[in-house]
Design a protein around this nucleic acid. Structure first.
Ligand SMILES: [Mn+2]
Ligand SMILES: [Mn+2]
Ligand SMILES: [Zn+2]
Ligand SMILES: [Zn+2]
Lengths: 133, 133
DNA sequence: ATCGCTACTTAGACTACGTCCAAATTCGCT
DNA sequence: AGCGAATTTGGACGTAGTCTAAGTAGCGAT
């Protein structure tokens, strides 16, 4: 979060003003926003940014591997600032998406799948957040 | 596949002509079609069916738990005739979705997730189909 | 058979998400 | 400053999905 221009350059991204705004928006967000959530947030501070630019920039960030996309919800792609391997929990009441640490879960048996070369995987969980007493 | 009216009734679904056509289409398909793929297929035999009816019917089947939906692809929901628990493999070249048997994979550690009550889960794998020599 | 009620189907309008385009602006370099 | 490349922009466009209001079919009671 500190030096965004340096971060963007380290991913091969020219840090323009708009891109910095998108980076600040998407990285400093309750995780897994949709493009339009990012757009709305950025426009609070930068009301003139265009929708096309936000979509272009998010897609650029994905291509450069600063972000990932996730298909965890009907109808819209979510952008994930956590580009490393991890799992996901979806709260079925609120739709909220939570990260689950890679090491918290063990998955066995992928090697023996006949005919399938798995290059990546994740566990997708659905349920409710347990009430804390 | 045998007696579709009886099958539909057993799920609490009134078997109309249109619903039988949708059931025949979606159940007898290379798995995981989108709504519009189902529509196209049904119209080969039943050219007058409306798009709204296909969407209505698929959503009804999901509500009655004859089908499930899966979010495995950008931009469109896939309908899954396999309503029981299983995992998925997505071929990143073709987009093809394959079922992976529940027992082929072991997942451990879900119990110890703090604050999360997991009611269902699946492993989502991406990769390529291994070339058969 | 007719009535009346409910369930279902239908075409088309409409919304939401995302991409594309062509013009305008900005950037990086000499 | 001047030039070509990269970026941004508004708006048109495409597509998946829902909604609405009217039409149709089914069904039980009289
Ligand atoms: Mn959105
Ligand atoms: Mn479709
Ligand atoms: Zn995540
Ligand atoms: Zn499946």
């Amino acid at each position: 979060m500190d030096n965004l221009p340096v971060l963007l350059r380290s991913y091969g991204i020219q840090p323009t003003l708009q891109r910095l705004a998108v980076a600040e928006g998407v990285l400093g967000m309750d995780s897994h926003p949709s493009a339009d959530q990012v757009l709305a947030r950025i426009r609070e501070r930068y009301p003139t940014i265009s929708r096309a630019t936000v979509y272009n920039t998010l897609n650029l960030f994905v291509k450069k591997r600063l972000l990932r996309t996730q298909n965890l919800r009907d109808g819209t792609v979510l952008f994930d600032p956590n580009a490393g391997p991890h799992h996901h929990f979806v709260d079925e009441e609120t739709g909220e998406v939570l990260d689950v640490a890679w090491d918290a879960i063990r998955v066995a048996g992928l090697e023996s799948l006949d005919g399938l070369e798995v290059s990546e995987f994740q566990v997708v969980m659905r349920g409710r957040r347990r009430s804390r007493n």
